[in-house]
Design a protein around this nucleic acid. Structure first.
Length: 1000
DNA sequence: GCAAGGTC
């Protein structure tokens, strides 16, 4: 490696952080020839330089040991792409990027340059993971710039233990370019994807909506990142799962038995039944023959194992669970404790100790502690038999040991409560994982009553072992009376109880960390940052029980991408990237190849997402009011391509929805290609249902060029019959009148008029209003104005071009909508704003949030009713549970509202819910069933059986949760239903068509 | 002004 003895060479050593530089210098300088350890300042106040002498393979070195602080460089776009408006975000997929030392690291850079110039060797003591390898090459780049002749070596160490450090120093290797390449790939992809999507969605949405969650909405950033978005995805997905939960009532039989020794509670081995009749029959069989026979008595010892050694994620999860401490705070405190030398490096994936670690020494340190010191003493006493070599969890990052105490403390004066808690957790966890498992004696008794099986179990803890020190965990033990095989007894109580299925809870911080860990989102050092980012970006909130809900913004963004059909909010993208990175680091794929493939794919995705940005708009419109700020005025495309633009001959014409909610057809090239937009006046004049417009525009033969000449003629006709006439000129300059007849209907709750049918008649030449009116019926010739109808198309030869600047907007009929007073000739102001926002709401209620989850009900189109509890729209869904598959129901979307009603109950007009098939709590047939069992008999005088009829003892009402009654007797339920039915009646009134059917 | 990853 090096030459023999002779004049000492100078070696520059660089660690990833100052603490490591200090620790390794301390270890290496403990040798006879070190001449002591000297410290001097570098240019950076945090990164000192340690100096000592050391021999590597018999070659004497003067060692200068300094450090960086993590990455020395960052990857950035070249200057001309840095400003947000400097380029189209799609350009960021190929804009040149550079790796450079940021300003705040220039001091470290200078120190490295100066030291490198004086040195012959460079030894890289960076952490032994991929990031560490990448940082190593950053250091190499800076140092070789100053000194091309450096002999470069890598010290790959995984623990700051004397023996290991000395060994590694004598066995230096070369840095691994492939590992560093993998990180380069990750950095570049993260930057390009993150920056492009963040700029895109921020600029698209921020000014288009009133973001009511902040007063500083001009500076809000709607960021996208390959880690933060999947993290948000987990939160939203669970939220949707909860919302789509369909509560189902179930029944179970419970049995208790009191004896002199105590009480045993027997659970029905069927669990619970969803079929009330079946449950009642079985219950009555039990009641009629209520003698219990013991069929099985099992006794066995069971161990409860201590946890594995502590990794970062486990530390965060446990601190959250035991102390309700956020992962961010936990890491902050752990970092403090690490810096002060009390615990080992807190960012580690490793959950097993190396065989070289002397665990006994760590325990010995803790013997003096006033609280757990005696436990530590017991652990070290071979006679106590408490010691057990820890079992690992199978994770090893090869860089750091599991988190463990490194210095004894009974508490420091500067420590906060959180410092005490985290230190205590680390120590107790360590002591626990080198301890024997707890041992419990479990007894299980099974009985038979009239052919039905029940079981009860009890546990007695024989040896607590690790539980003595790990106070955070308990092991419930309950004692049951002694039973013998064949023994018979009469139960003390036998009840038929009802319950209702509950949705899963919101994700806790520990749950979220588990999801991220499982999906490989983030690293142990960054996971808490991603969680915090959700809060900082207003994407999610954390409630007092440390559980996460998405905000309106978070839900809208995920919903928008989900509606596009993209799984950008799922963890798959990150997982694929991780796979590619691994391939690069193993040398099975080349860096350039992975970069190109990934960016090409993501660029295509980005382009497509931009094309479908209408979905994002629609999703945002569900939750937020539209804003009048200018940047949101760009029309966005929805639906398919209509045809090639006749003017630029390059881009496609697509149906677009303008920010005011109206529709237009525009060239995708606009404004880049400077080709104007052609409007359909009638599309602009009225709000069509999206489906209808798309249907119309599918007629590709429609001549787009047209010239709109004036207002429609017949406002009165419009207001009465939903009919209006538009004059056009054809190619010969002849005036044509197109009369469009519209038949209206109201959606049930939204009070917006959506066209459900459309007919067109034509009248050649100029006509009077009277002529129009009189011709409506006589010349009525239903046909598609989209061009399908050949006769109509030939007759109505619409020609000419219009531009979005000079084509005036047709005035609209008066009095057809409350907001019509707001109409103007400006295209950006929609007189149908009410209708627009309402229709967006429909889109929200009809979307299948529940469809995201496994057991969810399928979405069902646009039908909705108002929530009887909170008034929010409840959309119609189809149940997908075994008991009710295919049955329709309404459920409330509002957070915290659990309103639920079967469609067949809701649609009976508020009179009597259908009893024959209904399984709801108000089912009259079930009431009959309960009545029959009131005649249960044959019980002993001293036994209080509770009949399934009458007042239940342990059931709960699933409407209000009150244990004093069942749902069928719930006062709240009755009120809810009346309210619902009242509202339904109102809705039916609005369903009457506005137009007299005879006209059409 | 944007990502995620180091670390102070």
């Amino acid at each position: 490696m090096a030459g023999g003895g002779g004049r000492p060479l100078r070696a520059l050593n660089v660690a990833e952080k100052p603490s490591v530089a200090k620790a390794v210098s301390g270890i290496l300088s403990r040798n006879p020839s070190s001449a002591g350890l000297r410290v001097r300042e570098g240019r950076s106040r945090y990164n000192k330089i340690f100096e000592f002498n050391y021999a590597i393979q018999n070659q004497q070195f003067h060692m200068a040991f300094t450090s960086v602080t993590g990455h020395l460089m960052e990857v950035e776009f070249e200057d001309r792409y840095r400003k947000w408006h400097s380029c189209d975000p799609v350009d960021l997929y190929h804009a040149p990027v550079k790796k450079h030392v940021p300003h705040d690291k220039s001091d470290i850079e200078k120190t490295l340059e100066e030291e490198a110039r004086k040195s012959q060797w460079l030894i890289l003591w960076l952490d032994c993971d991929r990031e560490g390898e990448n940082i190593a090459f950053e250091v190499v780049e800076v140092c070789t710039r100053a000194n091309r002749n450096l002999n470069i070596w890598r010290a790959r160490f995984s623990a700051l233990i004397d023996r290991e450090i000395h060994y590694i120093a004598q066995h230096l290797i070369r840095p691994n370019q492939l590992f560093a390449d993998a990180v380069d790939v990750r950095q570049e992809i993260d930057l390009r994807i993150g920056a492009s999507f963040t700029r895109f969605q921020t600029m698209l949405l921020r000014d288009a909506f009133v973001l009511d969650f902040t007063t500083d909405d001009k500076n809000v950033i709607l960021s996208y990142g390959p880690c933060q978005f999947p993290t948000l995805g987990f939160v939203v997905e669970r939220f949707w799962e909860i919302q789509s939960h369909e509560p189902e009532e179930f029944w179970t039989i419970n049995c208790t038995h009191n004896s002199e020794e105590g009480t045993a509670t027997f659970n029905w081995m069927r669990g619970h039944l969803f079929d009330y009749t079946c449950a009642t029959i079985l219950y009555e069989m039990c009641v009629q023959e209520p003698i219990a026979t013991v069929t099985n008595v099992r006794q066995q010892e069971k161990p409860k194992y201590p946890p594995h050694p502590l990794s970062t994620i486990e530390l965060e999860k446990r601190a959250s669970r035991y102390f309700r401490m956020s992962s961010e705070q936990t890491m902050k405190v752990a970092e403090d404790l690490y810096q002060a030398g009390f615990i080992s490096y807190p960012r580690t994936e490793t959950d097993c100790f190396s065989e070289r670690t002397d665990l006994h020494i760590i325990v010995q340190d803790q013997q003096a502690h006033p609280i757990w010191g005696s436990y530590a003493q017991r652990l070290l006493d071979p006679e106590a038999g408490l010691w057990r070599n820890p079992s690992g969890g199978g994770h090893d990052d090869k860089a750091h040991p599991p988190i463990h105490p490194t210095k004894f403390s009974s508490g420091e004066s500067g420590w906060s409560q959180d410092h005490h808690k985290v230190y205590e957790l680390v120590v107790r966890h360590f002591l626990a994982c080198v301890s024997q498992p707890a041992i419990g004696a479990e007894t299980t008794v099974e009985i038979d009553i009239a052919g039905e099986q029940f079981s009860a179990s009890g546990r007695v803890i024989i040896a607590k072992n690790y539980l003595d020190v790990y106070r955070f965990e308990t092991w419930g033990g309950s004692v049951i009376p002694t039973y013998t095989y064949g023994q018979q007894f009469t139960p003390t109580t036998l009840t038929l109880d009802s319950g209702v299925t509950r949705p899963p809870p919101l994700l806790s911080e520990a749950d979220l960390l588990s999801c991220m860990d499982k999906a490989g989102i983030g690293t142990d050092a960054t996971m808490h940052d991603h969680i915090k980012k959700l809060l900082d970006r207003y994407y999610a909130t954390k409630d007092s029980s440390m559980r996460f809900s998405p905000t309106k913004l978070g839900e809208a963004l995920v919903m928008g991408y989900d509606d596009m059909g993209y799984e950008l909010w799922k963890p798959y993208l990150r997982a694929a990237m991780e796979g590619d990175m691994k391939a690069v680091s193993m040398g099975t794929k080349r860096k350039a190849e992975v970069l190109e493939a990934c960016l090409q794919q993501m660029k295509a995705c980005f382009v497509d997402a931009r094309l479908n940005k209408g979905k994002l708009f629609e999703a945002m419109a569900v939750f937020f009011e539209r804003s009048n700020r200018s940047n949101g005025n760009e029309p966005y495309a929805i639906g398919d391509v209509v045809r090639r633009c006749g003017l630029c001959q390059e881009s496609d014409m697509v149906l677009r929805r303008k920010p005011d909610g109206n529709f237009m057809v525009g060239c995708l090239g606009y404004p880049q290609t400077d080709v104007d937009v052609v409007f359909y006046p009638w599309l602009d004049a009225i709000l069509f249902s999206k489906k209808k417009v798309e249907e119309l525009l599918r007629c590709s033969s429609l001549p787009l060029e047209q010239k709109y000449l004036g207002k429609e003629m017949s406002k009165r006709v419009w207001s009465l019959f939903g009919t209006f006439a538009i004059p056009f000129s054809n190619s010969n300059g002849k005036i044509l009148i197109v009369i469009v007849q519209l038949r209206f209907s109201s959606t049930i709750w939204l009070f917006s008029r959506v066209i459900v049918d459309l007919n067109v008649v034509w009248l050649p030449g100029s006509v009077s209003e009277a002529a129009v009116t009189s011709n409506i019926c006589s010349t009525c010739s239903p046909g598609c104005i989209g061009g399908c109808d050949n006769i109509l198309r030939q007759l109505v030869e619409i020609c000419g071009t219009g531009s979005h600047n000079n084509s005036s907007m047709p005035g609209r009929g008066q009095g057809h909508t409350p907001s019509s007073s707001a109409q103007s000739n400006s295209r950006s102001q929609g007189a149908w704003q009410t209708a627009h926002s309402s229709s967006s709401y429909t889109s929200h209620s009809s979307r299948g949030r529940s469809a995201q989850t496994q057991d969810a009900a399928a979405e069902d189109g646009e039908s909705s009713i108002p929530c009887a509890s909170c008034g929010a729209p409840c959309n119609l869904r189809t149940a997908n549970t075994p008991a009710n598959r295919g049955r329709k129901f309404y459920s409330c979307q509002a957070q915290g509202c659990n309103f639920f009603i079967w469609e067949d109950n809701a649609n009976t007009g508020g009179t009597v819910p259908r009893g024959s098939t209904s399984r709801s709590a108000s089912n009259s047939s079930r009431r009959g069933g309960r009545g029959r069992s009131n005649q249960s008999r044959g019980r002993a005088n001293d036994v209080a059986f509770v009949s399934a009829t009458g007042e239940p003892i342990s059931g709960r009402c699933f409407v209000c949760g009150d244990p004093s009654h069942f749902a069928n007797a719930c006062p709240n339920r009755g009120r809810s239903r009346d309210l619902t039915m009242g509202r339904l009646l109102i809705s039916i009134m609005f369903m009457c068509p506005v137009t007299a059917p005879s006209i059409l």
